[in-house]
């Protein structure tokens, strides 16, 4: 990560990201206890639905208002075939800045990379990277090994597709898996390339605390990559052994979200 602050952004000023309809699902607690809102950012292929399944409601039960965003071109958001990581990060910052209080950004999978880019443009209260996919060749090789048919096309300009074994654990009932798989979308081609060749995220503004969590048995994010991702933010990952990549849809979904909320309550900025 380059550590220098960037002030000049002539190209971005000259070519603002076009607005698009954004799907935001929310769950608000009945009583506002002044806790920071959580903004969940799904990874490639997923949409806000992945968090609406369990995590949003659970966060609201514990007093945190939760918002889940579908990146442009995914799920209920407007179409955007030419979307880039910049446009995705723009969507995150737009929704975060629209909340009444400084938000905690929670990114899952490649959504964590989007959050890392958004952190350079928005002083979040805190950030959580869930099974972060920061891209690069190590991740690509892992994906190739686990799912050659879904990954190979992406390397020659086609669409990236994840399979059941990569995302879900064995304990998850078959019909639930089928329901989730049917909802998986496809990321924009340019954003997909940026996952492999894109620029490193710039340093986060406002020095937010960052929590990295994942599972050592994750078939998308190898353990070593998870440790490296956590080291980038000066910490060690919080591990949930035996879980799959889609922690929020796993049969044991309650453990990681409770881990996140406990961490937020402990953080001096969380209360």
């Amino acid at each position: 990560m380059s550590q220098q602050v960037r002030i000049m952004r002539g190209r971005e000023w000259a070519r603002p990201v076009r607005p698009v309809r954004r799907e935001v699902l929310e769950a608000i607690p009945g009583l506002d206890e002044g806790r920071p809102p959580l903004l969940f950012v799904p990874g490639f292929g997923h949409g806000a639905w992945a968090f609406a399944e369990h995590w949003l409601g659970h966060a609201a039960e514990r007093g945190f208002s939760g918002y889940a965003l579908s990146l442009r071109g995914q799920a209920g958001s407007g179409p955007a075939p030419e979307a880039t990581l910049r446009a995705y990060a723009h969507d995150v910052v737009q929704v975060a800045a629209g909340l009444s209080r400084r938000a905690v950004l929670v990114g899952h999978g490649a959504g964590a990379l989007v959050v890392a880019h958004a952190l350079a443009r928005y002083p979040a209260r805190a950030a959580v990277m869930v099974a972060p996919v920061f891209g690069g060749w190590a991740t690509a090789f892992t994906a190739l090994r686990r799912n050659p048919l879904g990954t190979l096309p992406a390397l020659v300009g086609g669409r990236l597709q994840c399979n059941r074994a990569q995302l879900f654990g064995r304990e998850l009932p078959r019909d639930e898996v089928r329901r989730h798989l049917s909802r998986l979308g496809r990321p924009a081609r340019r954003a997909q390339w940026q996952l492999l060749l894109g620029r490193e995220p710039e340093p986060a503004v406002g020095d937010p605390p960052v929590l990295v969590l994942g599972s050592p048995e994750d078939r998308v994010v190898p353990h070593s990559v998870l440790i490296r991702a956590a080291r980038r933010y000066g910490s060690a990952p919080l591990l949930f052994p035996g879980m799959s990549h889609d922690l929020m849809l796993d049969a044991r979904w309650r453990e990681p979200i409770d881990g996140i909320l406990d961490w937020l309550e402990k953080e001096p900025s969380g209360g």
């Binding site: 952004r9 443009r121 002083p123």
Partner: peptide, 15 residues
């Protein structure tokens, strides 16, 4: 215009 006016870390709504 908007991109040259807003705070760099708190954009105006893009619509």
């Amino acid at each position: 215009s908007r991109p040259l006016t807003q705070f760099p870390d708190f954009p105006m709504p893009d619509d």
